[in-house]
Design a protein around this nucleic acid. Structure first.
Lengths: 108, 108
DNA sequence: TTGACGCATCAAGAAACCTTGATTCAAATA
DNA sequence: TATTTGAATCAAGGTTTCTTGATGCGTCAA
C-alpha cells in the first residue's frame, strides 16, 4: 500500500517524464494557441501519425492533455489543472529552497 | 546549426528529464533543507553509493544541483537559478495557455 | 608511505523508451 | 453495405536509462 507521499512522487515523476521529450514539448507548444486534431499536428510537426499518437497518449496519461471527439476527428488541448499543478510544484520548490538559501551548512 | 528555439527545447527537455525519476525527486527533497554529502544521502534514501552518484550527476548536468568539495566530502545543494528557470517555464505555459482558455475552437 | 574512507566511473545486464510500418477500429460518406 | 478517413494500437527493432558490483582516484590519518 503506497503512501500518499509515494504516490505524489510517482505522479510528479510521471508528469516530468511526459515533459522530458522534445517532440512532446513541441506538441504542447502547438496546443498553447488552441486545440488541434492529430492530423493538424502531423502537419505542424512533420511527424508520422503513429508516432504522434504515441506521444499524445503519454501526455494524456500524465494529465497534461485532454481530448474530445468530434465526428472523425479527435481534438487535443491542454489541461489547465495540470499546468497549474506544475507551476505549484515549481513554486513550492523555489519557496522551500529559498528559505535556506546561502549554502547553509546544515541542520544536524 | 540549431536554432535558439531548438536549444531551448533541448534544455527544457533535459531539465524535465532530470526531474522524471523518483529517486532524483527524493534527492531534491532531501536538499531542500540544506546541503548534504553523498553518504548522508545514501543513509537518508537507503540507496547504494554508485546509484546515488549516477543520479547526482544527472541532476548536476541539468544544472539543478551544485557541488562543493570539503576535504573528503562533496556537498550537494540546489541551484536556485535553475529552480527559478523551471518556475518561469511553468509560469509562461500557464500564462500563454490561460490567454486562450475555454476550449477555443481555433485559429488554423 | 600505507591504509582507510568518500566518491566518481566503468562494465554488463535488465528494463523502459522511442520509432516505424502494419493492422485495427470507429465514424462518415457513397 | 462497402469504402474511405482519422486515429489508436500492435509488433519488432534500435536506443537510452537504470541498477549493481567492481575498480580507480583523491584526501586524510596513522
Amino acid at each position: 500500500m503506497p503512501s500518499s507521499k509515494t504516490k505524489d512522487l510517482e505522479q510528479a515523476a510521471r508528469l516530468f517524464h511526459a515533459l522530458s521529450d522534445q517532440t512532446r514539448l513541441r506538441i504542447i507548444d502547438c496546443l498553447l494557441e488552441c486545440e488541434q486534431c492529430v492530423c493538424d499536428l502531423t502537419d505542424m510537426l512533420q511527424a508520422g501519425q503513429s508516432r504522434l499518437s504515441f506521444h499524445l497518449k503519454i501526455l494524456k496519461d500524465a494529465g497534461i492533455l485532454k481530448d474530445r471527439r468530434e465526428g472523425r476527428w479527435i481534438y487535443y488541448s491542454l489541461n489547465p489543472d495540470t499546468i497549474e499543478e506544475l507551476q505549484e510544484y515549481a513554486g513550492s520548490l523555489k519557496t522551500r529552497s529559498h528559505a535556506v538559501t546561502g549554502g547553509s551548512p546544515c541542520c544536524d
